[in-house]
Amino acid sequence: MGSDTRKRTAGAFDVRLVIALLTGVYGAVITVLGIGFVSDEDLAKAGGMNINLIAGIGLLVFTGLFLLWVKLRPLTVPVPEDEEDDSSQSEQG
């Protein structure tokens, strides 16, 4: 997306990437906690369910789907009328 510097991308950012960043980091952290650092006390608390691992994997899957969406339907930035000369508008995917 960033290769064409003539694209008017400075004016907008894709909130989907921010969401994916958040869920990705959260997912990674608690998956690691769920695999490597789960104590018996934690397990007993949640009735034997390793919720960090399960929720972590869930978050990572969600992140993957979101990134797929961003890839398949990239953000298009319409060029405002007064900047019509800058005509390198990206196509709707």
Partner: peptide, 25 residues
């Protein structure tokens, strides 16, 4: 608005696992 969208996902990420563990419990 963007933060509300972000917040929506965080709330779901917080409450959905809580519901699942709770039901399991």
């Amino acid at each position: 608005i963007y933060n509300e969208v972000l917040q929506f996902f965080v709330i779901v990420a917080a409450l959905l696992p809580l519901t699942l563990v709770g039901l399991h419990e």
